[in-house]
Amino acid sequence: MKLAYYPGCSLESTGTEYDMSTKEVFKALDIELCDLGDWNCCGSSVASSKDYLLSLALPARNLAMSEKLELDVMAPCPECYLKLWKARDAVKKDPDTLDKVNKALDGTGLELKGSIDVKHPAYVIVNELGLEKLAERVKKPLDGLKVVPYYGCVMLKPPRDEKLDSPENPTGLDRIITTLGGEVVPFASKVKCCGGGLILTNKEVMLNLTHEILKEAKDAGADCIITACPLCHLALDGRQIDVEKEYNEKIEMPILYFTQLIGLSLGIGPKKLGLDKNFISTQNLLKSLKL
């Protein structure tokens, strides 16, 4: 399998370890990722709050670049994944929109046909590679490690393709955890918002929502939470110390990207997976896995 790889802005900065671990894991799974080259920001939810057509045209430029490679494109950041998918969906459903988007791209040397698909790495692994194949490569089973599968909001919402996973009660990450030999912690807030989107604009509300998730995980006796989103990660991991201060509680909950967890059980070194870049120490976790 071969895919175009769209890292997106976060994976170049706050989500470096997501980028590192995704590349390592996909290499180990023999899925080739092609560099998209001079990709641009997808515009995030911000462009759609500014101008609807702009919110389609920014991702469209990246889609057109993937089309040139004749490859489907994979985006690990759920926000990028959503924006690329939305642009693709809008032009597929409506020729008039395709026409407008192409008018917006006029003069860039790129043209969109709407011929390729947009994918998320979690579901490339679960639905396309298949969990049996993943199981075959597991070298270090997680030995009953208690893991919270946290899906966040936009990886599956608004609903795209029911074949992908259920938006309200998803199981993709759960099944990955079980395949790796971990134990899934039943988690009421698995699709509840962590407030990451308000990280700069409304810290009070953000800390409250982040706290609810961390607390539920702590009370359930989890060893770690896995996430597939760099913004959730920044809230749950980067802001965890602020949550501890605000609520006067010790939480110390390691927050891993699901790709970091997969990487560990595939026998990839923690350093290569960027585990030293997580804010909340992953040392005890690695020790308990004898890594």
Partner: peptide, 13 residues
């Protein structure tokens, strides 16, 4: 409109 976290829960349901 500014407290909305764009979580898509409402829209999905």
């Amino acid at each position: 409109i500014w407290v909305c976290a764009s979580c898509f829960t409402c829209q999905s349901r």
